[in-house]
Amino acid sequence: KLETFPLDVLVNTAAEDLPRGVDPSRKENHLSDEDFKAVFGMTRSAFANLPLWKQQNLKKEKGLF
């Protein structure tokens, strides 16, 4: 399991300012399950079932792209 970080560490943070080991294209993977659901309004599995373009739009909207 990946290390999780608080939302404010990941949202609207440039790649070079992210904690070590965080993939800038997969910031959402480093949210706790609770934060993930609070941000996206759905579970990880529901998010994973969305088309890629919709996932990317949601990530942009939430500052996690």
Rank of each mutant, 00 (worst) to 15 (best):
K1T: 12
K1R: 13
E3M: 10
E3N: 09
T4Y: 14
T4W: 11
T4Q: 09
T4I: 15
F5P: 02
F5Y: 15
F5V: 06
P6D: 07
D8M: 11
D8Y: 08
V9Y: 15
V9D: 06
L10N: 02
L10C: 05
V11D: 03
V11P: 03
N12E: 07
N12Y: 04
N12S: 09
T13P: 07
T13R: 13
A15S: 11
E16K: 13
E16D: 10
D17F: 09
D17N: 13
D17P: 04
D17K: 11
P19Q: 04
R20M: 15
R20Q: 14
R20H: 14
G21P: 05
G21D: 07
D23S: 06
D23P: 04
P24E: 06
S25A: 15
S25R: 13
S25C: 15
S25P: 03
S25Q: 15
R26N: 13
R26V: 07
K27P: 07
K27S: 05
E28G: 02
H30I: 04
L31N: 00
L31K: 00
S32W: 01
D33A: 07
D33N: 08
E34D: 13
E34W: 08
E34N: 10
E34Y: 09
D35E: 09
D35W: 03
D35I: 05
D35N: 05
F36L: 01
F36D: 00
F36Y: 01
F36S: 00
K37C: 14
K37Q: 14
K37W: 15
A38F: 12
V39Y: 06
F40K: 00
F40G: 00
F40P: 00
F40A: 00
G41C: 09
G41I: 02
G41R: 06
T43F: 05
T43Q: 06
R44S: 04
S45P: 09
S45I: 14
S45H: 13
S45Q: 12
A46K: 09
A46W: 05
A46N: 09
A48L: 10
N49Y: 08
N49A: 13
P51A: 07
P51D: 06
L52F: 13
L52R: 10
W53V: 09
K54N: 10
K54W: 11
K54G: 06
Q55L: 01
Q56H: 11
N57V: 13
N57H: 12
N57Y: 13
L58Y: 04
K59E: 02
K59D: 00
E61I: 10
K62A: 14
K62G: 03
G63F: 06
G63V: 01
G63D: 06
L64Y: 07
L64Q: 02
L64S: 02
L64A: 04
L64P: 02
F65G: 15
F65K: 08
